[in-house]
């Protein structure tokens, strides 16, 4: 299982790598990173057949996370469709509803609670 983290913040990569150090070491999951939605789409194009879970920030320059969500939902109807979780600093109700309506599997706020994230990933990642 590969988790693609989409965020324009560069340090997010280091954070995730450290947070999931054990899981990576035990090869429970793999991490991939994209600094923009477009990069994420490119990644998906390249690694289309893999089992990918997308964690995407919403507020990003250029294409937003929601747009990415919509595109993935419309362009990658692969069986099984990728799990997509949205992460945003604006964890308010309208944002949440919009994300869920657009086909998000879950919705997380910033600052990110990794324990909660891991709980939410458990159903999708075997051995977590």
């Amino acid at each position: 299982m590969t988790i693609l983290v989409v965020d324009d913040e560069v340090d997010i990569k280091e954070l995730f790598l450290q947070r999931f150090r054990r899981e990576i070491r035990t090869q429970v999951l793999q991490l991939a990173f994209a600094l923009s939605a477009q990069e994420a789409l490119d990644y998906l194009d390249k690694h289309g057949g893999l089992e990918i879970l997308i964690l995407s920030d919403i507020n990003m320059p250029g294409m937003s996370g929601l747009e990415l969500l919509r595109r993935v939902r419309s362009q990658y109807p692969l069986p099984p469709p990728p799990v997509i979780m949205m992460i945003t600093a604006y964890h308010d109700s309208p944002n949440y509803q919009q994300a869920m309506a657009d086909g998000a599997n879950d919705f997380l706020g910033k600052p990110l609670d990794f324990n909660l994230l891991k709980e939410k990933l458990k159903p999708f990642v075997a051995g977590l």
């Binding site: 913040e9 340090d11 954070l15 450290q18 947070r19 507020n59 600093a89 604006y90 910033k110 600052p111 990110l112 990794f114």
Partner: peptide
């Protein structure tokens, strides 16, 4: 708020 949430995210998590 958003701008603060992002650094806070790092501060907290790191």
């Amino acid at each position: 708020a958003h701008e603060i949430q992002n650094p806070l995210n790092f501060v907290n998590n790191f």
